[in-house]
């Protein structure tokens, strides 16, 4: 363990009705890095992300998080004990439509974390909200609007602003760009990178799109059927995949060159 380790996950497992979704997963996350978690649909990456933040409760394993007050083991905390820790770890969701309450204005959405954690008075909270809107490059007149007035990319910016307004250390991005158009995806990825640099964030970046992961991540875990099959520094792993499954995933990345045909590997040919 490095002394700048922010999160350690050891032997994490989660079953749904006896079916394993996450099976004995262990890894570390270092401060200010971006760790990618990739895998196909159903590989357990979202479940893993949710277990870490205790959005769902894991069945087994240890999740150690370095909070402002030292190390805590998240898996044993009661919901009440978790509440103060929510300031330090947040999630950015996949679906920018479903993740914003349609009945709250942008101001209410962004203010809520501050209200819940009793941060500042009314003016200070408004100032923080406006500051956050600047960070995610939204107009100040967005405040009084409802989510239905925004495009997908703008909504995702609102979701990002909500996650970051408490200035967390750890941010879990659960397929946060998967639902967006490619051009919007690029904007949001750049925004996430800017914010990471400005605010010193650590990302746990769950994605199925390997080209996105290659762009944004420092290290990557490859998950298959609930288990981590391979992990390593992104460039190494992408250049020299050791596992067949990783090769299968990599073969599904389309080339930017339109003349290069996409030739995904056949599952059976790699023995999966």
């Amino acid at each position: 363990m490095h002394d700048d380790t922010l999160l350690t996950v050891t032997g994490l497992s989660k079953h749904f009705d006896g079916v394993p979704a996450v099976e004995d997963v262990s890894f570390d996350v270092r401060r200010s890095e971006t760790l990618g978690i990739v895998g196909e649909s159903g590989s357990g990456k979202t479940t893993l992300a949710r277990c870490i933040l205790r959005a769902i409760d894991p069945d087994a394993g240890v999740v150690r998080f370095r909070s402002a007050d030292g190390w805590v083991e998240l898996q044993d905390l009661s919901p009440k004990e978790l509440i103060p820790l929510r300031r330090e770890m947040q999630m950015i969701f996949q679906d920018p439509f479903a993740s914003l309450n349609p009945r709250m204005t942008v101001r209410e959405i962004l203010e809520e974390p501050l209200v819940v954690h009793r941060v500042g008075n009314r003016e200070e909270r408004l100032a923080a909200v406006l500051d956050m809107l600047d960070h995610v490059q939204l107009e100040h007149d967005s405040l009084t609007r409802y989510p239905h007035a925004f495009s997908g990319g703008q909504r995702q910016r609102i979701g990002i602003a909500r996650a970051l307004i408490l200035r967390p250390n750890l941010v879990v991005c659960d397929e946060s760009v998967s639902a967006l158009d490619v051009s919007v995806q690029a904007q949001i990825i750049n925004l996430l990178e800017d914010l990471q640099r400005d605010l010193g964030l650590t990302y746990l970046f769950v994605a199925h799109d390997l080209s996105v992961v290659q762009h944004i991540c420092d290290r990557v875990l490859v998950m298959h059927r609930g288990r981590v099959v391979e992990s390593g520094v992104v460039d190494d792993l992408f250049a020299n995949p050791r596992e067949d499954y990783t090769r299968l995933l990599l073969s599904a990345i389309p080339s930017p060159d339109p003349d290069v045909p996409l030739r995904p590997l056949d599952r059976r040919s790699v023995g999966l």
Binding site: K80, R87, Q90, N101, M104, V116, L166
Partner: peptide, 26 residues
């Protein structure tokens, strides 16, 4: 199961607040 309800919980809102602010109005 809605994401905005999970988002509210992850923000740190307690159950009464989640029900009052996010579920009932819907």
């Amino acid at each position: 199961e809605e994401e905005f309800v999970m988002a509210a919980r992850l923000i740190g809102a307690d159950t009464p607040r989640v029900i009052r602010k996010h579920m009932l109005p819907s």
